[in-house]
Write a protein that binds this DNA or RNA. Sequence first.
DNA 1: AATCGCGCCTGACGGC
DNA 2: TGCCGTCAGGCGCGAT
Length: 271
Amino acid sequence: MPELPEVETTLRGIAPLITGRRITAVHIRERRLRWPVPRGLAARLTGQTLLTAQRRAKYLLLATGAGHMIVHLGMSGSLRVLDGATPAGPHDHIDWVLDNGTMLRLRDPRRFGCVLWTRSEPFEHPLLKGLGPEPLSAQFNGAYLYHAAHKRRSAVKAFLMDSHIVAGVGNIYANEALFASGIHPARAAGRISAERYQRLAEAVKYTLRRAITAGGTTLRDFTRADGNPGYFRHALQVYDRAGEPCPRCARPLQRQWIGQRASFLCRSCQH
DNA sequence: AATCGCGCCTGACGGC
DNA sequence: TGCCGTCAGGCGCGAT
């Protein structure tokens, strides 16, 4: 499942291979993604050059002279650059054929992702406009979190996963960062000290950075058949480890539902 | 304004 | 073995 580090890895993998390339054809086999792929997409893109590729939250923004594509991988999506003659599998929904015989291909079995088109400034698009700061930016820090949490009564984990507060922190990293900073995921966001938020912000950055570094592995064999090596599973301290010993105190880790999401924690290390 | 619950969709997994 | 029910997951959206 693409969390922010995998989206970043995807970006770093495809950007050098697609930027500056002209799109010679677009094949759309399935329009029914989270939102329908716009009707005129192929016509608008054909003949356009891909100018830049960037990431905002878990969205990828691919710029052309005519407008921008906004791509989200949902939870099962992947983008890869392949030889233009590679036959399409059952969930290969869109191919962007490039002028050097390669193509960018979107695969998304569960179709939770999206490919949208905007002719105006992509950061002004309704999906991106209200997003909070990037978790790896200087703007995201303990003081920011502390002020944003003022009087909030929802669980800190839900608060941390709210894209209006900070963009792109998913379930796995929320669990990991809360464990690393010793904060119980169900604690009310408004009842956490500035000092503890400082630790939490650092933990978010640390876990994301480490996962991005691990994603470098994926980066290197990016064009191989399929690449979910599960490399960062081993680095996870609590996620999906209910019943296993806490890495700090060795007492069994718990699974608990907070909101509608499974949370993993240590009852004696997190308060 | 903040918070909650829903639904989109498929593959993996467990129980029978 | 095969069939079926359950669940996970991101996240926008509508309801409260």
